[in-house]
C-alpha cells in the first residue's frame, strides 16, 4: 500500500507542476493588470511605471523563470490587490474554506448514507420516493438561489438566523446548509443505487436467512460493500466544495479562498491566483490520498494488490 500511495503522490506532483505552468501562462493571456489597477485616464508613464514595478514589462519567459525561482524559495510573489505576500493572503483565507468543507462533508456523508440506505431498503416505498425527489431537487437547485431564499426566509422573515457574516456559530448554519445541498443530493442517489445492488446480493439473503436484524443487514453488511462508489463520488464532491464555496462565500460574506480566487481572477492578481490554485490543488491532492487510503481500508483487494 505504501508503494501505491507513493505512485499516486508522484502522479499528483506531475499534475501539480503542469497546472502551475498552465495557470502562469493562461493568467497572463487575459490582459494587463495595469488597466485594472490604474485609473482609465492614467498616463502612459504611470502605466509603464506600474508594469516596470511589478516586472510585467519583462519578457514572459523571464517572468516565468522568476516565478519558478521564487517558488523554490516558497515565495509566490506579492499580491497586487493587498500589497502583501500572496501566500499570506491565501493562507489567511484558506482555513475558512477548509472549515466550511470540514463541517459540510461529514454532514453530507451522514445524511446521504442514512437517507440513501433507508431508501434502498424498500425501493418504491414512500420514503424512497420522497428521498429521490428531494435529492434530485437538491442536486439540481442552484446554490445561489437557495442562498438568497435562505436569507429571506430564515433571516428576514423568521428572524431565527443571521443574514450573513461569521460572528457566531449561528452564522454557519445557512452557509453549511446551502453548501450541503448539492453533494447530498448527488450522494443520496449514489448510495441508494449502490445499496440496492448490495442488498440484492446473495450474502445478504444468507444473512437474512440466518436471522440477522435489518439494521445490521443495512448498516453493517450491505453498507461496507456499497461504500466503494460512494467514496469515489464523495471525493469528487469534496473537491467540488471549492466551487460551491465561491457562491456561499460571496453571498454570506465569508472570507474564504473561493471568493478570493474569483476576485483575483477578475482583478488579474496573478500571484494570488497562482498561490490559491496551488494551495487548492494541494488540498485536492490530499483528499485523493485520503480517498485512496479509504479505498484500501474498505476493499482488501486494493490493500493487498
Amino acid at each position: 500500500m505504501g508503494s501505491f500511495i507513493f505512485k499516486r503522490s508522484l502522479q499528483s506532483v506531475f499534475s501539480l507542476v503542469a497546472l502551475i505552468i498552465l495557470i502562469f501562462f493562461l493568467a497572463r493571456m487575459t490582459g494587463s493588470p495595469a488597466d485594472l489597477y490604474l485609473p482609465q485616464d492614467a498616463s502612459a508613464e504611470a502605466r509603464f511605471q506600474f508594469n516596470e514595478q511589478y516586472g510585467f514589462n519583462d519578457p514572459l519567459i523571464e517572468q516565468f523563470g522568476r516565478f519558478l525561482w521564487g517558488l523554490l524559495h516558497f515565495d509566490m510573489g506579492q499580491s497586487l490587490q493587498f500589497s502583501r505576500p500572496a501566500v499570506d493572503v491565501v493562507l489567511q483565507a484558506f482555513p475558512t474554506t477548509l472549515a466550511l468543507a470540514a463541517i459540510t462533508m461529514p454532514l453530507v456523508l451522514l445524511v446521504s448514507i442514512i437517507t440513501g440506505s433507508l431508501a434502498a431498503y424498500r425501493p418504491g416505498g414512500i420514503f424512497d420516493r420522497l428521498a429521490s425527489i428531494l435529492s434530485l431537487v437538491g442536486a439540481s437547485t442552484p446554490n445561489f438561489w437557495v442562498a438568497i431564499v435562505g436569507v429571506l426566509v430564515f433571516a428576514v422573515t423568521l428572524r431565527v438566523l443571521p443574514t450573513s457574516g461569521t460572528g457566531t456559530a449561528l452564522h454557519w448554519i445557512l452557509p453549511v446548509g446551502v453548501l450541503m445541498l448539492r453533494p447530498t443530493g448527488v450522494l443520496v442517489q449514489v448510495v441508494r443505487t449502490s445499496m440496492m445492488t448490495a442488498l440484492s446480493s446473495t450474502y445478504i439473503k444468507t444473512a437474512r436467512a440466518k436471522g440477522v436484524g435489518s439494521r445490521a443487514i443495512v448498516f453493517v453488511h450491505a453498507l461496507r460493500n456499497g461504500l466503494l462508489p460512494v467514496i469515489t463520488v464523495a471525493s469528487d464532491q469534496a473537491a467540488g466544495i471549492v466551487n460551491g464555496a465561491v457562491i456561499v462565500e460571496t453571498v454570506f460574506g465569508f472570507p474564504g479562498i473561493g471568493k478570493l480566487m474569483i476576485d483575483s481572477v477578475l482583478l488579474r492578481d496573478f500571484a494570488v491566483i497562482q498561490a490559491a490554485v496551488l494551495v487548492t490543488a494541494l488540498a485536492v491532492f490530499v483528499i485523493n490520498i485520503i480517498v485512496d487510503i479509504a479505498y484500501a481500508l474498505v476493499d482488501p483487494r486494493i490493500r493487498y494488490s
Binding site: 475558512t96 477548509l98 463541517i103 431565527v160 438566523l161 457566531t168 456559530a169 449561528l170 454557519w172
Partner: peptide
Amino acid sequence: MNFWKSIALVASTALIAPASLA
C-alpha cells in the same frame, strides 16, 4: 478566521440560543 476556532464555533451551535439575534 482560524480553522480550529471555526470548528469550535460551529460545534457550540447548540449552546447558543437564537436570542443572540437581538
